[in-house]
């Protein structure tokens, strides 16, 4: 066999260079720094440091509070990711089924896409504000004492944070799902209509499997959104910090590192976080993606 050699042009490398630079400067270098710092006790000013092996990791893992934050982050992220996708799917399917006005609904449902997490947080803060928030009043009108108190109660705080985060994310998912639905061949849908008049049954066995690649992609990006980007929502709803029990792992990294100036401890936390997300992504690609059928 004669191997075919194409002339290697440097052009592709030039094109890929800016992206590589960005990854290097904003991801690889900081990750390496975090990894290095997680093995040191270093004063924040960088004047002295000492190598402490895995002490920082041990401190983090043996901290009861950290474990509590870990579990609440898992639950919060799962709820935010799943509800964002499910609600967006509901909207997308309903809008897709409309004969008229579908193009009127779409911009309204994608509107909040343009909103930054911090702004979504501000909106949530106003809606649930004890002074001026309509939702605060609504949730408290059923009982004589203050039943809903997001300034104190962790569950109520989670409700505020989750609804703000989900609302912001639905639009992103909606855009992808509408595109995914439109890519499903019409003839397949028409054929299924002849086979079974039950709408839900057709959705479950025809539409959903054909939508699986989009859903899988959304699952990956929604989990990373729920874990990382909801920080913006938390920090704007609670500039002084959420009530006890309503922190996420990323928020804790920020509090310990940026507010508390504990570099070793917060670096160890961010390395742990990085490993978790890495593992999660591997699991998603190895086990869930196998069940996704690409056309």
């Amino acid at each position: 066999m004669k191997r075919v050699h194409f002339g290697h042009s440097p052009i592709p490398y030039v094109f890929v260079l800016p992206q590589m630079l960005i990854i290097g400067v904003f991801f690889l270098w900081p990750s390496f720094e975090a990894f290095r710092l997680s093995f040191f006790l270093e004063d924040p000013w960088g004047l002295s440091n000492q190598f402490v092996w895995f002490d920082n990791y041990w401190d983090v893992i043996s901290d009861e509070n950290y474990r509590a934050v870990f579990f609440s982050t898992v639950i919060f992220s799962a709820v935010v990711a799943l509800l964002s996708i499910i609600l967006a799917l509901l909207f997308a399917v309903k809008v897709d089924g409309l004969l008229r006005l579908s193009s009127t609904y779409r911009p309204f449902l994608t509107w909040s896409y343009a909103i930054a997490p911090a702004v979504a947080g501000l909106i949530a803060r106003f809606l649930y504000s004890p002074q001026i928030g309509p939702l605060y009043d609504f949730l408290n009108q059923f009982s004589t004492d203050t039943w809903f108190e997001p300034r104190l109660d962790a569950m109520d705080a989670w409700l505020v944070l989750a609804s703000g985060s989900i609302w912001k994310q639905i639009s992103v998912n909606f855009v992808f799902l509408v595109a995914g639905l439109q890519a499903i061949p019409r003839n397949v849908l028409e054929a299924s209509l002849l086979d079974n008049p039950n709408g839900f049954r057709r959705f479950w066995s025809i539409t959903l499997p054909l939508l699986a690649p989009t859903l899988f992609f959304l699952l990956v990006i929604n989990i990373s959104y729920a874990v990382f980007e909801t920080f913006g929502v938390i920090d704007t709803v609670y500039p002084f910090g959420p009530p006890s029990g309503a922190q996420t792992l990323v928020y804790k990294v920020y509090v310990d590192g940026f507010k508390g100036a504990d570099l070793g401890g917060s670096s160890a936390q961010s390395v742990i976080l990085m490993v978790i997300v890495l593992l999660l992504t591997v699991v998603q690609f190895r086990y869930i993606e196998k069940r996704v059928h690409y056309t």
Partner: peptide, 12 residues
């Protein structure tokens, strides 16, 4: 700053 954080957590 972090000790105050511990206090806030527990007072909450």
């Amino acid at each position: 700053v972090q000790i105050r954080e511990v206090m806030y957590e527990n007072y909450d």
